[in-house]
Amino acid sequence: MSEPILQVNHLEKSFGSHEVLKDIHFEVRRGEVISVLGSSGSGKSTLLRCINMLEMPSGGEIIFEGKPVSYRPKDKNHFRSRVGMVFQSFNLFANMSVYRNCMIGAQIVNKRSKEEADALTMKYLKAVGMSEFRNALPAQLSGGMKQRVAIARALCMEPSLLLFDEPTSALDPEMVGEVLDVIQDLARSGMTMVIVTHEMMFAKDISSRVIFMDKGVIVEEGEPRQLFENPQQERTKEFLSRYRR
């Protein structure tokens, strides 16, 4: 088995007196694709946001490539440059072209030369099928296109781990496919990913491991086939039965 890239130990998060995450414990190994399932409010998104420190965890620690991540701004930024994140609402920079959106991180965070950053940008824009649109502004694109650009932007940082926070939830049904195809290609290329999603079939197809969360705890975790076809916990069965029609 390959070495763990990310370990989450006893992670806790509360907003005021409301506990959103309770003692979360799991690890991600190189090359794994992990899907996180659960109903709204189960803490899936908060878990991802805590991993990337967009929310400050209230307790516990995150170990990345063997070293605990500190909250000092410098360490935090470095950690984030190694871990990509794709949002539900794309969050592309509104004042920059598609090309600039992808280029800027490689250039000013990873300190790549202009030529290197350009090569990376073109490579990944082609990979997501958006190189033709490189001069467009985000506002001029459809949702699916924006999300593909957002994925390219994350890839241009050459991350060792990619986090997806419900990447298709804000998309029209006919655009979901194009984004899922891109994620599938990434999985095939061996990218390590954690995907929070509501696309059950997709999760079953693509994942090497599935985590089911409910009320801020990990209820069950296992191989997709086992978890989908033979769930052990009552809550998992209940959740999955709602998706089977």
Binding site: N77, F79, R80, G84, F87, N91, V109
Partner: peptide, 25 residues
């Protein structure tokens, strides 16, 4: 939109870089 800040944070840009390149323009 706070998403602009988060988009920058997610690729490891510092607060100053996000302000200069994304927010202030």
């Amino acid at each position: 939109d706070p998403g602009q800040m988060e988009g920058g944070q997610a690729i490891g840009m510092s607060y100053g870089q996000i302000m200069f390149h994304v927010i202030m323009p």
